[in-house]
Every structure is written in C-alpha cells, then in structure tokens.
C-alpha cells in the first residue's frame, strides 16, 4: 500500500505558542483515519497543515508526492489533490448549490459550464441532494449544507479528503445524515483523515485512530484502542466523551 500522507516531526507555532510539538504519522492510500483528542490538542491544526492552510515551522509533510514545506511547492497543485470539509460548511452564500460545486471544476480544472454541470449532478446525487441543485445555501438545513460541501470537494476527485469536525455544528439527526455520507465514502475506498468527536463514527468507519494530546501523537492503533485505551490520558478522554 502506498503512503498518501506522511507527517514527520511537524512543528507548528502561533507566535510563542507551540501547537504541534513534533507530530509524526503516516496514512496509506484508501485508509480512513480518525484524528481525536481534546480541544487544543492540535488535531485541527495538524489537518490544516496538510493542505497548507497553516505553514509549518519544522519537520516535513508529504502528500501524494508534494513536499508541503518546500518553498517551491505549487500550492494549487497540492490543493487539487486534497479535498477539505469544514466545521462551518463554508458554502459560498451568493452561489446556488450547482454553482458552488461547479466553481472549482471550471476555475481550477478549466471545464466548460456544461461539462462541470454534468460532473456536479451525479456527485450531488451521491450525497442525496439532487433536488436541491438550484437552491441557495441558506435555503438548506445545516446537514444538507454540509453534504453539499462534501459534494463540492468530491467533485474535484481529490486523492485525500480532510474532514475538520464536520458534524460539530449539527444536531444528532443531521449529524447522522452527514456521517452516513462519510461512511459511504469510506466504503468506496477514499483516503480520509477525519478530525472528530464522534466516537461511534470512529469505531464504525475508521481503520485506524490517532489520539493527539498536548500537541503530540499520544496513542495510535486500530479502532479497538477506543474501547481498550493504553494510556491514562486516552482512558480519561474516552470517559469524558461518553
């Protein structure tokens, strides 16, 4: 199995504050990895370093052949290979669902309008929202908006998908509909790094779990470490999550 994402001793500082203190992990193609930990443990920051929404101060990150810390990196080429879904959906409010999905297809992949539309349709069907193609984001529920955001990323056919606490703003019912889409995606063989507090999802869909604590990878293993944690910190974290 080939390595899709590899972090080696990554250090990230915001001013004086060191958020990542030498983080290393590897993710293989087709793997679904849940990145868990308390707020402030650095899990979201680690994710954001992968597509260079944050620049790192030390260590190295390799994603599908791109060296992220290389000053000569073609950032847009890197980001073409990585899809990202955010906690706050971040759909473009002035565009319809179709326009949201078609934008990057047209601007980044250079497709014609009709070509992009033909790509958008089946992707939207995949997240179960075909009938909303001409709606504006504010006409949709949070769960629907998040599914559109997933479709928008998927349409670009990324090699890796990053999910940054994508259900944290949703109630349990809407969380369920978003997680079902993600589980489908996982079964379809997508490489996924999922920052989440949904331990149920981690248990069902993740091949591997990485527990981060105080800016370091603290414990990693299969989904079974959630029911059988080795470190006292993860034990305590799991007790709080339940």
């Amino acid at each position: 199995m080939s390595v899709a994402v590899k972090l080696t001793n990554v250090v990230k500082r915001f001013g004086e504050l060191e958020v990542l203190k030498g983080v290393s992990f590897e993710i293989n193609s087709g793997e679904v990895v849940a990145l868990i930990g308390q707020s402030g443990s650095g899990k979201s920051t680690a994710l954001r370093c992968i597509n260079q929404l944050e620049t790192i101060q030390g260590g190295s990150i390799e994603v599908c052949g791109h060296r992220v810390e290389d000053p000569k990196l073609d950032v847009r080429a890197l980001r073409r290979d990585i899809g990202m879904v955010f906690q706050s959906y971040n759909l473009f409010p002035h565009m319809t669902v179709a326009q949201n999905i078609m934008l990057a297809l047209r601007r980044v992949k250079g497709m014609r309008k009709d070509e992009a539309y033909e790509v958008a349709k089946p992707v939207l069907a995949k997240v179960g929202l075909s009938e909303k193609i001409d709606s504006y984001p504010e006409q949709l529920s949070g769960g629907q908006q998040q599914r559109v955001a997933i479709a928008r990323s998927l349409a670009m056919q990324p090699k890796v998908m990053l999910f940054d606490e994508v259900t944290s703003a949703l109630d349990p019912k809407l969380t369920g509909e978003v997680l079902r889409v993600m589980e489908d995606l996982a079964r379809g063989g997508m490489t996924m790094i999922v920052v989440t507090h949904e331990m149920g999802f981690a248990k069902r869909a993740a091949n591997r779990v990485i527990y981060m604590h105080t800016g370091k990878v603290w414990e990693t293993g299969g989904a079974d470490i959630l029911s059988n944690p080795q470190t006292p910190e993860l034990k305590e974290f799991m007790a709080e999550e339940l």
């Binding site: 597509n51 929404l53 847009r76 080429a77 980001r79 073409r80 990585i82 899809g83 990202m84 955010f86 706050s88 971040n90 759909l91 473009f92 934008l103 990057a104 601007r107 980044v108 955001a149 928008r152 990323s153 670009m156």
Partner: peptide, 13 residues
C-alpha cells in the same frame, strides 16, 4: 476568512 479558506482549499488562485 473561512470563505477564503474554503476557496483556497479548492485550489482557487
């Protein structure tokens, strides 16, 4: 800023 981040993540210039 999250709007801009989303656009960056999609690879827009």
């Amino acid at each position: 800023p999250s709007q801009i981040e989303a656009a960056q993540a999609l690879g827009l210039s």
